[in-house]
Write a protein that binds this DNA or RNA. Structure first.
Length: 828
RNA sequence: GCGGCAGUGGCGGAAUCGGCAGACGCGCUAGAUUCAGGAUCUAGUCUGUGUACGCAGGUGGGGGUUCAAGUCCCUUCUGCCGCACCA
């Protein structure tokens, strides 16, 4: 018995972490002779401390990385920091510490925590987005987008968070509130920078097809967010004016059913339309009232539809009819053209509005059954049918009608078929300090001038005052904004807005490939070798924002020949949340369990093992203190098992072949190799770490059972114990390393090859066959493994229980499932 | 409203291709060890019934297909997530 037989996880974990670090164990370089594998977990925002969600994310990633390494892959497994962002600045306002100081202190702390988890990162490739050597290239990305017409500035109604004092992207507005602080978002008219992600809408949609390794759920969310709809856009002459009203519709087949038009209150034509009319006052009142109502309240589906008549009329180009133009709350300015043709008979919203304001309802699509009557309708008819009251188009089906009306409009110059997307351009300006400055200079002579590449980075100044003014603090730093025009040398002013932090995280996975480049963001050589990411792991909350932006950047970089991949992430695993008492861990709920405490009390191996064992990775996980203790108990059992056998097995050499084993030894070998097969399959094809671990537990139990045998085959026992450690080492890297070395092994267990199962060991002499009558289990028999169907049949019919239970019955047929069961079908 | 996911013991979960429901772990019960507690070990643990071999029922509810259904089909209920007046 070893002298020190207690499982001292603290000493063991510290020892091996130091060993791995000193020996640069996880450093990786490009090696064309081996297949590469890029395992990536979403990098964290350095908020100060790791939480359980991080632990789960990084434990999953670490198992994948270690498993792939043992399987012979050259594995890139990097880590970094999404380090720009509002919390640092808010902390600065609150506590007076500079955002940089706050951020870097947090990084130090969290890095130590990540190391204490036993993660296998190549820290030489660490990336920190707030470092000038990184954001230099975030700015470079901006310049490239600008150069290709994909970064532009426009005055737009934008989402403004009054609490964060900055604008937000559409994707950052949740239920009309700021996703960060929950404050109701306001609309503000501002000059802002945008990235033209809409140019990529169709490709972002189409290429989802090329991602079989992504969860269906995420793809559907992206698809909905892109929101493609086909239809047509056409113009209507406004009566008595030299103006046209353009509308978008997906139902051109119902154009003969138009009985009114509706414009959004913000529509630029509204003022002109009503000028001098008796309705002017009422319209203006309505418009200003709508401005006061929050966007959510106004556009929620439950909101009562309301509007006013403008006094103006448009001419329906299809039939020359005069149609009144209304303004209503239910039409949105930022979708389509901000105006619609209203067909109350065949659109529920138009229907409700028409009922309320007594506008006629005209049926132009007739369903199969009873004829529809506009005045009798209870709701809009949106089903299939044939066109009626539509002149020469009568009789066409909805589908034919759409095509024919569009064709007609195109022939007569009225309009054309178009595709509309819900996706808007990505607003990237932020009126805050702690972000990458937008590399643009405004010159009174030359106008908007991009900063020349050689002048990058545009450095964030360190001396800044933080006050919540609603303007970028950079506005008050003269030495920052005062500059000269790079074209003509005139005194000029820098852009003082910074970039959305999602810009930084849209390309960091490329940077990991060659993180030390100073003149270019990354080399083609490195990205050609490493990209795409083979397995990306992170929370589902990034399903739209980050994952869509990263796809957009990758496609752009592909187009400008910086990358040779069009999609950044081949496989995506969206992990579930970590819950406690049924809800997400949060400070406000007071149900937070600190990873540091768990690691301190039980060790990192226990923490990792529990979190991977409690639930499959994509599902939510309920935290259980007792479950943690269970995981710890298991590791103690493994510890004792190895320590109690280590002396016995030290001098045992494993044979090349196993012959003449007794039944118990054969059974243990079977279990050993069946476990290899099961664990390999669970990790490789399903990421079901929970069942992989339970299989390892079963093997542990089987080894302990075997040890109670009087006669033990030490070779078989040693093989089983070694296999147990090797299979367990990706999950619990420290204890397995320690026990492996105590068994007398000179090299790290993490340098072992992943074991292959021996098919010979899985061959059984006898197997159990279940005997059923009418699908109910009646008996089990042991039969020779090679028994034929006829032999099985004979044995079954000869079985005493089967004979007994079928003696007064007619046997209708017998179903044999080889290797599993036999079912005797009987009738009385 | 639309879209997606899920519903299995006291709990977390397993059952991968239609073939033994409840693996593994937690909890609980009894016993061993112990002054005691803790730790550890052994046995048991879906429900009903029976001394027992067993028998019957059982995967949210109802119906169906099949020799055989947690798994497939129809229908319905509940919970969670996403989107939501997108013309």
């Amino acid at each position: 018995m070893e002298h020190n037989s207690k499982y001292d996880f603290k000493a063991i974990e510290a020892k091996w972490q130091a060993y791995w670090e000193e020996n640069h164990f996880y450093k990786v370089t490009e090696d064309p002779s081996r297949p590469k594998y890029y395992a990536l977990e979403m990098f964290p925002y350095p908020s100060g401390n790791l939480h359980m969600g991080h632990v789960r994310n990084y434990a999953i990633g670490d198992v994948v990385a270690r498993f792939k390494t043992m399987n012979g892959y050259n594995v890139l497994h990097p880590m970094g920091w999404d380090a720009f962002g509002l919390p640092a600045e808010n902390a600065a306002i609150k506590h007076g510490a500079h955002p940089a100081k706050w951020t870097y202190a947090n990084i130090d702390n969290m890095k130590a925590q990540l190391k204490s988890l036993g993660t296998s990162y190549d820290w030489d490739r660490e990336v920190t987005t707030c470092n000038p050597d990184y954001y230099k290239f975030t700015q470079w990305m901006f310049l490239k987008l600008y150069e290709h017409g994909l970064a532009y500035k426009k005055n737009a109604a934008v989402n403004w968070c009054p609490s964060c004092q900055t604008v937000l992207a559409n994707e950052q507005v949740v239920d009309g509130a700021c996703e960060r602080c929950d404050t109701t978002v306001e609309k503000k008219q501002l000059e802002q920078w945008f990235f033209k992600i809409t140019d990529y809408a169709q490709r972002l949609l189409d290429d989802l097809e090329k991602l079989p390794g992504w969860p269906e759920k995420v793809k559907i969310m992206q698809k909905n967010w892109i929101g493609r709809s086909e239809g047509c856009q056409f113009s209507m002459q406004i009566e008595g004016m030299d103006e046209k009203l353009t509308v978008f519709t997906t139902r051109p087949d119902t154009v003969f059913g138009v009985t009114f038009m509706v414009m959004a209150p913000e529509h630029p034509l509204v003022e002109k339309l009503v000028a001098g009319k008796p309705e002017e006052k009422a319209v203006k009142e309505f418009v200003s009232r709508m401005q006061l109502v929050s966007e959510v309240a106004r556009t929620s589906a439950e909101a009562e539809k309301e509007g006013v008549f403008t006094g103006a009329y448009a001419i329906n180009p299809m039939n020359g009819e005069r149609v009144p133009i209304w303004i209503a709350n239910y039409v949105l300015m930022d979708y389509g053209t901000g105006a619609i043709m209203a067909v109350p008979a065949h659109d529920q919203r138009d229907f409700e509005f028409a009922r309320k304001y007594n506008i006629p309802i005209r049926v132009v699509i007739q369903g199969e059954d009873t004829p529809l009557d506009g005045s009798q309708l209870r709701e809009a008819y949106v089903g299939h049918g044939r066109m009626v009251n539509s002149g020469s188009f009568d009789g066409l089906s909805v589908e034919e009608g759409k095509a024919r009306v569009i064709a007609y409009m195109q022939e007569h110059g009225i309009g054309e078929g178009t595709v509309n997307y819900r996706l808007r351009d990505w607003l990237i300006s932020r009126q805050r300090y702690w972000g990458a400055p937008i590399p643009i200079i405004y010159c009174p002579q030359c106008g908007t001038v991009p900063v020349p590449e050689k002048d990058l980075p545009v450095m964030l100044p360190m001396e800044v005052e933080f006050r919540p003014t609603g303007e970028s603090p950079l506005n008050y730093v003269e030495e920052f904004y005062k500059t000269t025009c790079p074209v003509c040398g005139t005194e000029a002013r820098r852009e003082t807005d910074t970039m959305d932090t999602f810009v930084c995280s849209s390309w960091y996975f490329d940077r990991y490939c060659s993180p030390h480049e100073t003149e270019i963001p990354f080399t083609r050589e490195a990205t050609d070798y490493w990209m795409p990411v083979d397995q990306y792991i992170g929370g589902v909350e990034h399903a739209i924002l980050h994952l869509m932006y990263a796809r957009f950047f990758t496609k752009f970089l592909y187009d400008i020949k910086m990358l040779n991949v069009e999609e950044p992430f081949t496989n995506l695993l969206t992990q579930g949340m970590v819950l406690k008492d049924g809800s997400k861990m949060s400070k406000s709920k007071g149900n937070v369990v600190s990873p540091e405490e768990i690691i301190d009390t039980y060790g990192a191996d226990t923490a990792r093992l529990f979190i991977l064992f409690a639930s499959p990775p994509e599902k939510d996980l309920e935290w259980s203190d007792q479950g943690v203790e269970g995981a710890h108990r298991f590791l103690n059992r493994v510890w004792r098992l190895v320590m109690e056998t280590v002396d016995l097995l030290r001098e045992v050499n494993l044979p090349a072949e196993y012959k003449e084993l007794d039944a118990a030894a054969k059974a243990l070998r079977f279990k050993t190799h069946a476990t290899i097969k099961k664990v390999t399959d669970d990790i490789e094809t399903r990421f079901n770490f929970n069942t992989a671990i339970s299989a390892i537990m079963e093997l542990t139990n089987a080894i302990n059972d075997y040890r109670s045998q009087e006669e033990q085959d030490l070779c078989v026992l040693k093989e089983a114990v070694q296999t147990l450690l090797v299979l367990l080492c990706p999950f619990a890297p420290h204890i397995t390393e320690e026990l492996w070395s105590r068994m007398g092994n000179q090299t790290s267990i993490h340098l072992q090859s992943w074991p292959a199962y021996d098919p010979e060991a899985l061959v059984q002499d006898e197997i159990e066959i279940v005997l059923q009558i009418n699908g109910k289990v009646r008996d089990r028999i042991m039969v020779p493994a090679g028994a034929s169907e006829d032999e099985l049949r004979a044995m079954a019919l000869n079985n005493s229980r089967i004979r007994e239970l079928t003696k007064d019955q007619n046997i209708v047929k017998i179903i044999v499932v080889p290797g599993k069961l036999l079912n005797v079908v009987v009738k009385p």
